[in-house]
Nucleic acid binder design. Structure first.
Lengths: 213, 213
DNA sequence: TCTATCTTGGAATAGTCGTTCCAAGTTAGG
DNA sequence: CCTAACTTGGAACGACTATTCCAAGATAGA
């Protein structure tokens, strides 16, 4: 029987993902990957193939390990509009403070990069958008059932709105946007989706967002 | 007296801007710039300096020639919410069809690129955001004066929302998003900002957006 | 322990990157 | 026409790019 790998491919891919996430895949060289992972070029190419396949794998890992769990939590949250508000609060906090501050979102960042034309990458981009929108839609449906939402709201359109808003937050956070501004922008949208003007004015569903500022 | 330039620097910068816009500055080499402009490396460096300064110049030109005129038109538009709806209709159309389809927005694209840390570039990014938000705010103020907007709407927050939404549209359009989805997302926001639920349901301010689909 | 089979480190590949340099060409005032 | 001042084409630079290759090392069944 042959030799086995002297490293953990899963841990290596995790480091590659973080490297591409923080710096951007386009401007990160294989030499950087070698240094960050401690692997040799041979092991890297034998395990992951070339850079394009490595980028696709790292992007797929980001969707599975980073995005999807949050999307699933949102879709499973039974609170309605507060669930969406909570999602954005955590998003802004993660994008503007802590370990990954100003890293943005790897999927969002990839939209403008060179690898966006690769089929494997494009597929992840579209899947990310579909899953984000579906999670938003699910939360909006719950909100509608709880009577939190204004009559006549198009849940599909509103879900698309919130997805686009999340991309905007991700994008601007990478340029060092003020978290207060981002949260204010989120609050204005959710207030617009809420049941009536007076209700949201006296007791807004997004009170927690305001408190975060 | 010395020799004069054998080319038009303004026209050359225009071509560079379009090149960076379509392909991305990071993945566009000086060789590509030389080929696209027809200039020699000597003339290029003598006129614009290195690549970083060239990128900053191209980005500044984009803001001045592409973004600002549209922002100014929005800020000067006295229609209120229809002015904002019209802005987004033109945006989606420009991003998804015609000459610059799937190019996105150069400023939006630059948010995720390598040059985003350069002071000159960062300055343009922030200026772009400030001007976009100010234009949105101006249109919202007009809308409030015309009684088109729901009571209690925070114009600053709503302006931030619309700016973030525009970034989302720009980003997703570069990945080939469906223009109908984008317009639906825009419509949902504007309906939420409009005066009352019943009014926007029977006669939405964003009717023209709906018709575009 | 032997050996087939895989992994590993690191050299080497051809190509591209941004940038610099210089001789040759071009201009316009004197 | 002369010449100072500038522009231009194109070669050349070292540093980097992704990728390939191979000898040496490691492994586990026979």
């Amino acid at each position: 029987m042959p030799d086995v790998k002297h490293f953990d491919p899963d841990a290596a891919l995790e480091q590659v993902m973080r490297l591409f996430w923080e710096r951007g895949a386009d401007v990160t060289g294989i030499a950087d990957v070698v240094q960050a992972t401690g692997l040799s070029r041979s092991s890297l190419y034998a395990t992951f193939g070339g850079k394009e396949r490595l980028q696709a794998a790292a992007l797929g890992r980001y969707l599975e390990r980073r995005s999807r769990p949050v999307f699933d939590a949102l879709a499973a949250d039974r609170r309605g509009l507060p669930a969406i508000a909570s999602f954005f609060e955590q998003l802004v906090a993660a994008r503007c403070t802590g370990e990954h501050a100003r890293w943005g979102c790897l999927v969002t960042n990839t939209h403008t990069g060179a690898g966006r034309e690769l089929p494997e990458v494009r597929q992840v981009l579209d899947a990310h958008h579909a899953e984000l929108r579906a999670a938003m839609r699910a939360a909006l449906t719950v909100a509608a059932g709880l009577g939190q939402v204004r009559p006549g709201l198009d849940a599909d359109a509103a879900a698309e709105t919130l997805a686009l808003l999340a991309y905007g937050v991700n994008l601007r956070s990478r340029a060092g946007a003020d978290p207060g501004d981002l949260l204010a922008g989120v609050r204005a949208v959710l207030d617009g989706f809420a049941r009536t003007v007076t209700e949201t004015a006296t007791e807004p569903v997004t009170d927690t967002v305001t408190e975060e500022r």
